[in-house]
Design a binder for these strands. Structure first.
Length: 343
DNA sequence: TCTGGGGTCCTAGGACCC
DNA sequence: TCTGGGGTCCTAGGACCC
């Protein structure tokens, strides 16, 4: 299940007069500032029109404003989206299936049915009745097939993608049409002469292991064949870590201030971590210098802890490993938890 | 394209050990 | 003291996703 233009849809629910207009949500809503598009309405995406007038998520806000000057720009309101998402997932769980939430606007639902389209429509009606939000539902024999199927069902539709029609639908598309394969991998594959899903499915897993590593190589081929094995689970999600990062509106060139900001971020991370039962074993500091060069340095803690003072001290020690003291545009602090003991 | 913020997983290389 | 072959752990970086 994948909600249609989720963030924009939540905004339109509380501002119905925006329906039908190009709406762009991102940053603090000021398109003259640093930030990117979190969500754009279908009107702003300008399907079928020229790229020079189309906006999509990830696009810099300043570029979006140049492309659609009369769009409505709104700030990101995480609290509102979290609340709406909770409502949706609650309604979905009410149907009695195993539900695995994959972010604000997506979930896998484990269903064994002779008539999956009927179940899909029931899911859509239930969510619509509870929240007024539309969604598309993809049907497949595994998570990979179902996930890709939602894209073909948009908006507000259903689509069935199984071994029966996998190559008919996807065979001639580029590999980055698949879930988990992006632009970089597609380029690297093209360099090996592999330019379609069908070609990737026919490739030798061992040969790809030489180029992509022992796990990724064979995984690429399995994915192109539409195969995936992970079951849908409703086990409560356990975060591996928590982090905070900020892109500053103006670059910081005073490294005393950088120190102060890292301390502040470490305190925010300490507060986030306090909500979890697990201790922190490692702290990583990230610095993005003004020309968009990003580096990180981390260190293992002497002993596992959640103590804010210890996390801050570790973050400052990690910061000391950065020798280059030129202006920065982004600072981040991340805390990583001890992994679960097996068994 | 002057390029967010929250994450996850994998890889390569070096250190270290036997 | 021209130097093997594992294995594991740690670290930094990259790719990807929502």
């Amino acid at each position: 299940m994948d909600l249609d233009q989720f963030i924009v849809a939540v905004e339109i629910l509380r501002r119905p007069e925006l329906r039908g207009r190009p709406v762009i949500v991102g940053g603090d809503g000021d398109p003259t500032k640093r930030g990117v598009v979190a969500s754009a309405s279908y009107e702003a995406r300008g399907y079928g029109g020229p790229v020079s007038k189309s906006v999509h998520s990830g696009l810099p806000l300043r570029t979006a404003a140049r492309r659609i000057p009369d769009a409505v720009f709104l700030p990101v309101d995480r609290t509102a989206y979290e609340a709406a998402s909770e409502e949706v997932m609650g309604a979905l769980r009410g149907l009695g299936h195993v539900v695995e939430v994959m972010g604000w606007d997506e979930a896998f639902v484990a269903v064994d049915s002779e008539d999956p389209e009927a179940v899909a429509r029931e899911i859509q009606e239930t969510i619509k009745a509870a929240t007024q939000l539309g969604c598309s539902v993809g049907i497949g024999r595994n998570r990979l097939q179902a996930k890709l199927a939602t894209g073909f069902g948009k908006p507000a539709g259903t689509f069935r993608l199984t071994g029966q029609n996998w190559f008919e639908v996807l065979g001639s598309r580029p590999p980055d049409a698949l879930w988990g394969i992006g632009r970089k991998t597609a380029q690297k594959l093209a360099g090996l002469g592999i330019e379609t899903v069908a070609a990737l499915a026919a490739a030798d897993p061992q040969a790809l292991a030489a180029s992509f590593g022992p796990a990724t190589g064979p995984w690429l081929v399995q994915t192109a064949r539409g195969l995936a094995s992970a079951a849908v689970t409703d086990e409560p999600y356990q975060a591996r870590g928590h982090g905070r990062e900020i892109t500053y509106q103006e670059n910081i060139d005073d490294w005393q201030r950088v120190r102060g900001e890292i301390g502040r971020l470490a305190q925010l991370v300490a507060a986030d971590v306090a909500a979890e039962p697990r201790p922190v074993i490692r702290v990583v500091v990230k610095v993005r210098y003004a020309p968009f060069l990003t580096y990180s340095h981390g260190l293992a803690l002497d002993e596992p802890t959640q103590e804010p003072a210890a996390l801050e001290a570790a973050a400052l020690a990690a910061l000391d490993r950065f020798t280059r003291r030129t202006p920065v545009r982004l600072l981040g602090v991340r805390a990583e938890f001890a992994p679960d003991e097996p068994g």
